[in-house]
Design a binder for these strands. Sequence first.
DNA 1: GTCTATATGATGATAGAC
DNA 2: GTCTATCATCATATAGAC
Lengths: 215, 215
Amino acid sequence: MTDAARPPGRSASARRGTERGTGHGTVRGPGRRPGPTETREAILAAARDLFAEKGYDGASLRAIARSAEVDPALVHHFFGNKEGVFVEAMRFPLDPSRLVPRVLGAPRDRLGETMVRTFLEVWSDDERRAPILAMLRSAMTNEQAAVLLREFLTSALFGRAGEAHGIPMLRINAAAGQMIGVMILRYVLQVEPIASASSEELVELLSPVIQQYLA
Amino acid sequence: MTDAARPPGRSASARRGTERGTGHGTVRGPGRRPGPTETREAILAAARDLFAEKGYDGASLRAIARSAEVDPALVHHFFGNKEGVFVEAMRFPLDPSRLVPRVLGAPRDRLGETMVRTFLEVWSDDERRAPILAMLRSAMTNEQAAVLLREFLTSALFGRAGEAHGIPMLRINAAAGQMIGVMILRYVLQVEPIASASSEELVELLSPVIQQYLA
DNA sequence: GTCTATATGATGATAGAC
DNA sequence: GTCTATCATCATATAGAC
C-alpha cells in the first residue's frame, strides 16, 4: 500500500509524547487527526533500532510496538506482517549510487584512503549505522536476510565498482571483507583497542591495505 | 485450555539413526549399558550444529532435542539449562595454545602466509568450523555470547600473540578483522567469487596483507 | 485509525512417574 | 535414564468493535 494519502503540512501533534490518551498538552481544534504519518514513522524508527540491536529473528513485533508506544495490532495494520516492517525499515540503508562514485572518483593513489574514510563516516553515525547493523545481524542467522544482503552487496556495491573500474571482483571482496571484519570487531564485539581507536588511526592503519587491493 | 493430548509425533524409542559407536573396538560384556555417554554426546553434536546454524537465540532446546532424537527433558537433565548446553557445546572450539605458537613460530617473512593457511584450514573443516560459526553467530545478537567471544579473542588469541612477539595490538586486530570479514563473506553470506575461490587463491590474495600487519 | 480479544503454536523450565 | 504432563510466557497473526 502506498502512502498516497498524506495530510498536508501541519505536523504539530502530541502523538508521541510522554503521555498518551486523554489530556494532551497541545490543544487541538475540531476535525480529523493528523493521520498515520507520525505513527508510521515512529514504528519504523523503533523497528530500525530493534532490528539493528537484535537482528530480524530477535526483534519481535511486540517489542517494536512497545518501543514505539503503539499497539501491536497497528504494526500489522500498517505493514501487513513482520517481513513488511523489515523491508520498509531497511529502505535505503545507504545510497550506493552516491557512495560508490564518490569512492571511485577519488584520485587513483587515494582510493584506499577514500574508501576507508567513507566507511568510517557511515559507521560512526548512529542513524546510518543502525540499518546496516540490522541487515548484517539479520543476515547472520536468517536466510532470507542473507539473500537480501548478498544481492545488495554484489549488485549495488561490488558490481558497480567492478565494472566501472576493471578491478578484479575477488579484490573488491577482500577489501570489503577487511572493512566488514573491522567494523564487527569495533562496533559489535567491541574488542580493544580497535573499538576505541580514533578515525585517523584507522585511516592510517587500513588505507594502505585497501589501496593495495583496489589499485 | 489445557492441551492434554499432544501427539508425540515420533515413534516410541527409535534411538539413534547414525551409529555413533563407543569409539573403541573393545567388546563389552553383559551388564548395564555404557551409560549416558552416547546420548550426551548426541545432544552436544546436535547442539553444535544448531548453534552454528541459528546462533544461540535461534537454536531452541526443543529443536536440539529433536535433531538428536531425544526427549527435550533429557537436555535439561544433562545440562541444567540452555546456557549449560551452550558452554558445553562450545568447549574447545579450537586450541589457541597450539594454533598461536604454530602461526607465530613461522619464519618472520612467512607470518602472513602461515596465518592465512591456518585460518583456511580450520574454516574449511566442517567439524572445526561449526563451533566457531556458532560463537560468531551467537555473539552477533546475544550479549552474553559477545562477552564470551570477546574474552576469548582478546586473551586467548590476540593477547597471546601480542605479548610474545611485540606486535602492536591494533595491527593484530586489523589482521583478525581481515580474516573474520573474509570468512563471513565466504561462508555465511556466500558472496561470489570469494565463496568459490580456492584456498590457494586466497592465500595469494590475503597473505601480503596479513604479512604487512604482523611484520 | 486505534484498540480488545482471541486463535494458534513455540519456547524454557519443572515435577514426578516408571 | 527416560519420558509424560504441565506451567507461564512469549510469539505472529486475524477478526471485528468503536
